[in-house]
């Protein structure tokens, strides 16, 4: 085996499912337009086979942008809230915060959209708002669980060693909580990709647009195209997070352990 590290890494990547699922997702995103006309045998006679209101790369980009923006906001809010609730000053609020975000989760997304439209108008904004509301809970739940999982003895030792509160958070608590925090973010983002489709009911451009149009126009071809792409998108991102989680967990090191 005289492959260099780069070739080694590439061959390792080729063996990961994220690579294959991601490749299929990209291929369909850019190839759907060419592929769709050949799928007529699947659908009733006379159905329009190619979604034309927007190109699929455009839909995917817009979908990713909406979900990404909402996820960033949700991660920022969820993480800050969890950090606050695990500090001495915020400990009293922990139960309230958990309850609030649990309530947010029980609201159906469509209802949130419907309520948001009068104040935020149609389009991307109410969609992002609903996604943020939905995304916060898993992030905060994961972060609370992760920060709560750091053993008390480790915190005691860190305090005793003379870490500042911020130093303890940054260098001890967050690194140790990272795998569980990441699992929460993974759930949040994956759910968000699925939920974003309903944003198209209030006029946001997402992979839900062909689905909604297909449903209202009785066109199963559009529904299928949107569904397949959004599912592949979610699975690709989910597997991608899986790879990051793998990288975060220290491999059994033996004698030749790597330093971090």
């Amino acid at each position: 085996m005289n492959a260099g590290p780069a070739a080694d890494g590439a061959s390792r990547l080729l063996r990961r499912p994220v690579f294959w699922v991601g490749a299929v997702f990209l291929a369909l995103t850019f190839g759907m337009h060419a592929l769709a006309p050949h799928l007529g045998f699947l659908f009733p006679e006379g159905a329009r086979l190619v979604y034309t209101r927007a190109s699929f790369p455009e839909l995917v980009a817009s979908h990713a942008l909406l979900t990404g923006a909402a996820s960033l906001v949700a991660i920022a809010i969820g993480l800050s809230a969890a950090v606050f609730a695990t500090r001495p000053a915020g400990r009293d609020y922990a139960a309230t915060l958990e309850m609030l975000s649990a309530v947010a989760q029980t609201f159906p997304p469509v209802a949130v959209l419907a309520l948001a439209v009068p104040s935020l108008g149609y389009g991307a904004l109410p969609t992002v708002f609903a996604l943020v509301l939905y995304g916060v809970l898993p992030v905060m739940g994961g972060a609370l669980a992760g920060l709560g999982s750091v053993p008390g003895a480790v915190l005691d030792a860190a305090d005793g060693a003379g870490f500042t509160p911020g130093g303890r958070l940054w260098r001890i608590e967050l690194p140790l909580a990272a795998p569980i925090i990441l699992a929460g973010i993974r759930t949040s983002v994956t759910i968000g990709i699925g939920t974003a489709t309903i944003g198209s009911t209030v006029g946001a451009l997402t992979l839900g647009s062909p689905i909604i149009d297909g449903l209202s126009g009785d066109n199963p071809a559009f529904v299928l195209q949107g569904t397949v792409l959004v599912a592949l998108f979610a699975v690709t991102v989910d597997l991608g997070f899986g790879e990051v989680e793998r990288a975060l967990v220290r491999q059994p090191s033996g004698a030749s352990s790597r330093t971090r």
Partner: peptide, 25 residues
């Protein structure tokens, strides 16, 4: 407190080594 603690060693029963750091660190 932070300055004081850095001047004193502290050892507890459950050790409390930082699991993500090597012995050296």
């Amino acid at each position: 407190p932070v300055e004081l603690r850095r001047r004193m060693g502290y050892v507890i029963q459950s050790v409390g080594l930082f699991p993500h750091w090597t012995v050296e660190r």
